[in-house]
């Protein structure tokens, strides 16, 4: 576990090192780590992005939405698999994160669903994704785009 108190310089360093993608842009005490996404084939198919969102403050935070120039309709979705093995996806709604807790957006569970792409997601590039919180706070993270077959942030 990395200690999450850092200056912009350190944040930039870590981002450069590819270790994590911390974001301290908003007034919200939230740190985003290990953000990643998969490249898209063209623009017709929705993309997905993953990350860990950590509440480093003393108050609960509630994530209510997303915004990005990459997609017209970015939304937090959740994949669920029922007892018969059938997977379905639906909007996850608001996500409350208690102080000191984190929420993982990872394959097969919660994910940032990027609908109506405005441009293809190209491997090796990054895009900004802004997390919107209920109190009006925002946190923007630069999400690296990995290959279509990537399995995690290190791939």
């Amino acid at each position: 576990m990395k200690k999450i108190i850092m200056t912009g310089t350190l944040a930039a360093l870590l981002t450069f090192g590819g270790l994590s993608v911390p974001a301290l842009a908003g007034p919200v005490d939230v740190v985003v780590e290990s953000a990643w996404s998969r490249a898209s084939i063209g623009m017709n198919r929705p993309g997905a992005a993953y990350m860990t969102i950590r509440n480093t403050g003393d108050e609960p935070v509630t994530l209510i939405g997303l915004s990005t120039p990459l997609a017209m309709m970015p939304e937090i979705h959740e994949t669920k698999t029922n007892a018969e093995g059938v997977s379905s996806m639906s909007a996850a709604g608001e996500i409350a994160i208690a102080p000191g807790e984190s929420v993982a957006l990872e394959p097969g569970g919660l994910h940032a669903m990027l609908m109506r792409l405005q441009q293809p997601m190209t491997e090796g590039e990054t895009f900004p994704l802004t997390l919107l919180f209920v109190d009006g706070g925002e946190v923007t993270v630069e999400v690296p785009i990995l290959g279509i077959a990537a399995r995690g942030p290190e791939d």
């Binding site: 017709n44 929705p46 997905a48 979705h77 994949t79 996806m89 394959p107 097969g108 279509i148 399995r151």
Partner: peptide
């Protein structure tokens, strides 16, 4: 299906692994 953003690429990556 190929328009599936989460489960399908994940499973195909797993299978590849």
């Amino acid at each position: 299906f190929t328009y599936c953003p989460d489960v399908c690429p994940t499973t195909l990556s797993d299978i590849s692994g």
